[in-house]
């Protein structure tokens, strides 16, 4: 389920739980919760599925919000942004997959040329911490730097006899 669908599903469950409230108050509550979610996501600086789930978890089940709304005039506990922010450092985004990806992209590139960075990219795409856009940018960086020179060299090489400026490794290893 994507991030927008998660928010939509949460609000739908909230409205279903709030049927006991007056219609006006129910709509107002849904608007307040939506606004709170948007603010928490803006504060988090990301809208990926993990962040949305974290924000919704901090809000608590829709039933509890409705119960708190019926039992008190003030906002339900957990509505302030502080708990969301305070909990973020506790759950570090660095898991084994993310650490492996960065190690393979850096040290792996030195000790396992070509294979290291490619394996690193596999781990990057396995991670749920980076968005698809961020994964695509990281992949583009590696692909552009690694493969464009090869393609250019092969393109130039196919046009004539090899010269010292082309990718033709063997003659230059001893040079």
């Amino acid at each position: 389920m994507n991030a927008e669908a998660l928010v939509h599903d949460y609000l739908r469950r909230l409205e279903a739980a709030a049927t006991a409230l007056p219609a006006g108050r129910r709509a107002e509550l849904a608007g307040e919760v939506r606004q709170h979610i948007e603010m928490a996501l803006a504060e988090a600086g990301a809208r990926d599925e993990v962040t949305v789930r974290n924000v919704l978890d901090r809000l608590g089940p829709p039933d509890e919000i409705v119960d708190a709304e019926r039992g008190a005039d003030g906002p339900p506990p957990g509505w302030t942004l502080a708990p969301v922010q305070a909990s973020a450092p506790a759950s570090s985004p660095w898991g084994a997959v993310e650490i492996a990806a960065v190690l393979l992209l850096t040290a792996g590139a030195i000790f396992l040329p070509i294979i290291g960075p490619l394996l690193g990219l596999v781990f990057v795409w396995m991670s749920v911490q980076w968005t698809n856009r961020q994964k695509t940018i990281a992949t583009a960086i590696v692909v552009l730097i690694l493969f464009v020179p090869i393609i250019l060299a092969l393109g130039v090489g196919s046009g004539g006899a090899p010269t010292s400026g082309q990718l033709s490794p063997i003659p230059y290893l001893g040079a």
Partner: peptide, 30 residues
């Protein structure tokens, strides 16, 4: 292209990508 230069590009590519991903992660935690 000189092979030595290309061999230098390999770690550079990985390191640049890693720096970008780490920066993204740090920015998200702020």
């Amino acid at each position: 292209m000189d092979v030595a230069l290309y061999l230098l590009l390999i770690p550079l590519a990985g390191i640049l990508a890693a720096v970008y991903l780490v920066a993204v992660m740090r920015r998200r935690r702020k």
